[in-house]
């Protein structure tokens, strides 16, 4: 029985959930990917800035200051002022939380619905699958920004409605990916085994299939935040998102459009900010995808 005690102690030592262990591997691979790490740090920086930034800026983001309008970048106004004399830097910092809130909540809402529909579709198959996936195809057939435009036009322009619009067009993206992964997992023998144990469909779906398909969901969610930010600012740029004087980046970009030749900084800085956030989430999402993909083991 000597070998028994030996093996028992090894069990003791390496008792880690394979998912956690997997995430450790993912983290190791992610750390080697410099671009992904840069994206990750930028995301952290943006999140911190969104939370603490508004307390650190001394200027009011929405109060017009006619005497200081259209000033270039200076020591007092780091990124200059806009046509109402508001400090662009302050507005950008205050707009950060709006941007992130739209990006993250629309992905949470759309992702939850999409994951649910996808998993139901993949698990039950047949007619349910056909109905759900064909409706998803209908949604996908619209260009995403056009669909969002339509939804916001119907619901009215507000940040909440922008979130709803983006969530709706993210649903089919998640549903498709989750359906594919569910189809792969549900054919595995351990799903048959728990079914033979008398588990209900809900138990199989949420406790046995869902934990096995989190990787693609995480990747898609990270990447889709970038798309959501871009679409949200796009909607505001077109005047359908945040209402003035909210310091929304897309709206700021639109404001700067009229002064593009003489005062390019008004449009430049919001544009740069949008590009940076989108870039950060894309880099990080790509890195996560590469790290989670077992085929790309280095």
């Amino acid at each position: 029985m000597a070998d028994t005690t030996v093996s028992a102690s090894t069990v003791e030592k390496k008792r880690i959930n394979p998912q956690i262990e997997n995430f450790k591997n993912v983290w190791r691979k992610l750390r080697q990917n410099r671009l992904a790490m840069a994206g990750g740090f930028l995301i952290i920086f943006f999140c911190v800035a969104a939370v603490v930034g508004p307390w650190l800026t001394s200027n009011d983001p929405n109060m017009p200051n006619v005497s200081d309008r259209l000033q270039g970048p200076s020591g007092e106004y780091w990124f200059g002022t806009d046509h109402h004399g508001r400090d662009i830097f302050t507005r950008l910092v205050h707009g950060m939380s709006i941007t992130l809130r739209i990006g993250i909540s629309s992905v949470i809402v759309g992702g939850t619905v999409g994951v649910f529909l996808g998993i139901i579709s993949g698990y039950y198959g047949g007619r349910i699958d056909a109905v759900i996936m064909r409706s998803m195809d209908v949604l996908l057939a619209f260009p995403s920004i056009l669909l969002a435009l339509g939804i916001v036009a119907v619901l009215g322009g507000s940040i909440t409605n922008v979130i709803i619009a983006i969530a709706i067009f993210s649903i089919p993206v998640f549903a498709r990916i989750v359906r594919g992964s569910t189809l792969a997992v549900r054919k595995l023998e351990y799903i048959d085994a728990v079914r033979a144990l008398g588990a209900s469909d809900a138990r199989i779906i949420f406790l046995h299939i869902l934990p096995n398909i989190v990787s693609p969901i995480i990747v898609q969610a990270t990447l889709f935040i970038a798309t959501a930010v871009l679409s949200a600012t796009g909607l505001s740029f077109l005047g359908l998102g945040a209402t003035p004087p909210t310091p929304e980046w897309g709206a700021m970009l639109a404001d700067g459009r009229n002064y593009m030749w003489d005062h390019p900084h008004i449009a430049l800085f919001p544009g740069l900010a949008i590009a940076l956030v989108v870039l950060a989430f894309n880099l990080f999402g790509d890195g996560v995808r590469d790290a989670l993909d077992p085929k790309l083991k280095s």
Partner: peptide, 20 residues
Amino acid sequence: IRGNQISMIFQEPMTSLNPV
């Protein structure tokens, strides 16, 4: 009845357990 009165064991022990 399944798993309670009638139980089943499968062929592949390698894939019949949920890895997570």
